[in-house]
């Protein structure tokens, strides 16, 4: 379980998160919606520890591993898709090449695995980002606009992967401003506005 208690965040004099109280339970899938700049991405950053709250706290009952997509998918552009995934997998050495290839196949990137990321379309980069978020089977999956630029087939694959992770007991948080695909089994929708949780 991850608990965010009265968390506030001030960046360059501006309060980007105000008194956020949120509990994330295992096996729960939460969607955060809201307009651009309302603090969705900051909240994801706060959950995975990329930023620390100015006041308040983020409590966890164990050491969670994270799989994230935050903002635009960024990679080593002049390297291949396979190299990028191998590099990230090599940091913790939790998975082998077979698992990486399995995920590349799942997200329809296997045929282009040796191509440079710089030649990829936005949708392909998005699928590569999804690959790296899911491949190590992390405890917590945080996805910022995960369905951006995906066609219908790949959107379905992404949504199914999210549902499967939920069934496996993962904590899933999705930030988006568009519509939520039906295939995603969302438990709770949180609406944000100006750094606060509205509902």
């Amino acid at each position: 379980m991850i608990q965010i208690i009265n968390a506030c965040k001030i960046l360059k004099g501006k309060q980007v998160l105000k008194n956020i109280n949120l509990t994330l339970n295992e096996g729960e899938c939460i969607a955060i919606t809201g307009f651009n700049g309302c603090g969705k991405t900051m909240l994801l950053r706060l959950i995975c520890g990329l930023i620390k709250p100015t006041s308040g706290e983020v409590k966890t009952d164990k050491d969670y591993s994270f799989g994230v997509i935050i903002e635009n998918p960024t990679f080593f552009f002049y390297e291949s898709a396979l190299y990028n995934l191998k590099y990230l997998a090599g940091i913790n050495k939790k998975i082998n090449n077979d698992v990486i290839e399995e995920y590349l196949k799942k997200f329809n990137l296997y045929d282009v695995r040796n191509k440079k990321v710089s030649t990829f379309s936005l949708g392909m980069k998005q699928r590569l980002a999804l690959c790296q978020a899911f491949m190590e089977d992390p405890d917590v999956i945080l996805l910022d606009e995960p369905f951006n630029a995906l066609d219908e087939e790949n959107l379905k694959i992404a949504a199914e992967s999210i549902s499967l992770a939920k069934e496996k007991g993962k904590i899933i948080v999705i930030a988006l401003h568009g519509t939520i695909p039906e295939e995603c089994k969302i438990d709770k929708v949180i609406k944000m506005g100006e750094g606060i949780i509205v509902n």
């Binding site: 995975c48 520890g49 990329l50 591993s65 080593f76 190590e136």
Partner: peptide
């Protein structure tokens, strides 16, 4: 510059996998 820049833009993915000290080493 290309190497360092690439390394920094991918930092989000690295930072969520290891702690800050190891990110520097990586």
């Amino acid at each position: 510059i290309r190497l360092v820049h690439e390394q920094l833009i991918i930092s989000n993915y690295v930072l969520t996998r290891v702690n800050k000290n190891k990110v520097f080493t990586v």
